[in-house]
Amino acid sequence: MTVRSAWLSPDGQSREDTRTNQVGALTPVTDGKGRSGVLPGSAGGLYRVTGLGLAGTDGTMNAHVTAGRAVIQSTLDRGAYPVAVTEQVDLTFAGGDAQYGRIDLVVLRVYDDTYDGSGRTEAAVEIIKGTPAATPAAPTAPDVSLVLFSVAVPANASGLTWATAGTDLRPVTVALGGILPTRTDDTAAGGYPGHYRDINSTLQRWDGTAWVPYPKGIGGIAPAGAVTTASYGGQYRDSSAGVLQRWNGSVWLPAVAPPSFTSSLDAGYTTSTTYTAALTDTAVTALALNFVAPTTGAVLLHFGARMLTQSSSTATAYMSVQITQGSTVFLTVNDEYAALYGGPVYGSVSTMFRVYGLTVGATYTVTAMHRSSDAAVTCWFDNFFLRADPAN
């Protein structure tokens, strides 16, 4: 039969009619097939899934699979098999090989004589024994089965430590539209754009080609670690340093950029009549400040110092700046931007001006530059500083 209906035929409903009409019961993987898996849930909601769990008696090869429910999807014409394990199922694993270790699988398996000719029509919890090898690999799971656990059996093993022997491989499935609480190593694609899953305590949405951390909707602020590349220009996220960031289309920038600041309290001097970054008699050979150009491409640049012209009332001490981006000079040092002072007694001076036309997101370096108007006069600079504030 090509077209099947459930609870319609007056001649009775076949098993295939029932299985193939499980519409809405499963997380979809195609328009006609659902995802095989264990139904999630636990008492009190503490765990992702507890059904069909594996436990054993340490020091023995004896284990059991707990009660639980699952759905196993077969081919499109056979449909999906719902299975319920209502009491624990006891299992005994074979002892270890004399030379090599092996990997066994614990599976929930469906036998259907109509299709497989097995002579059985039932579901069963089984051990699929692996092949011992120097580098053992898990065996292939049988058709129409759901892998629950893999179990590593070392060479010569006569008993296992069950807290570490088994690896949980249980997939889960939920109703159509439900959020899938999946394992951290689950690489399965979503069933449709708009499909959601919870993984690593992060909500993700399938966009048709990849799982995208959520929130990605307009206005959503993504938590720290959830988003590497934004979904749109203007998206916000919380950084690992606790700083709110905004995506400008190519990089993350501070949403509210703090000022950049540096200073020195170690006085130094120069007699050079051309601008120099180096001062004598100070540990700070060149005071420099790095800043990242904000989204406006402009900053307010502040700088200044306590200055004096030693034993001179006619000479002038100049402090100005040079701005570079890498090896490229963006702003050449000159007197027009300088803070200046003349006198044999210290005086504090500073200035400020707007720097614009910066490349958004690029890093710039401001370097303090100094000079004297007279080569015979020593100009001192103390408590000198540089500061860059984001500007409109």
Rank of each mutant, 00 (worst) to 15 (best):
P10K: 09
D11V: 10
N21H: 11
G24N: 08
P28V: 04
G44S: 13
R48G: 13
G53R: 03
D58I: 05
T60E: 14
A63G: 14
T66K: 10
A70W: 09
A70V: 06
V83H: 08
V83F: 08
A84Q: 15
E87T: 15
I103V: 12
V106R: 08
D112P: 05
T121V: 11
E126G: 11
E126K: 10
E126I: 11
I128R: 02
P132V: 08
A133M: 09
P142C: 05
D143V: 06
V147E: 15
F149I: 09
V153A: 06
P154L: 03
L160Y: 05
L160G: 05
R170Q: 09
T184F: 14
S201A: 15
S201E: 14
T202H: 11
T202C: 11
L203N: 02
W206P: 07
G208V: 03
T209C: 01
T209W: 01
A210Y: 00
K216S: 15
T229P: 10
A230V: 08
N248R: 09
V251F: 13
L253T: 00
A257V: 04
P258M: 03
S263E: 12
T274F: 08
L279H: 02
T285V: 12
T285F: 10
A286E: 07
L287N: 07
N290M: 13
V299N: 00
F303L: 07
L308F: 13
L308P: 06
S311D: 11
T314H: 10
T316C: 05
T316I: 14
M319S: 04
T328I: 04
V329D: 07
F330H: 13
E336G: 11
V355M: 02
G357D: 01
V360P: 00
Y364K: 11
V366W: 03
M369Q: 14
A375K: 03
A376D: 13
F385G: 01
L386G: 03
A388N: 00
D389M: 04
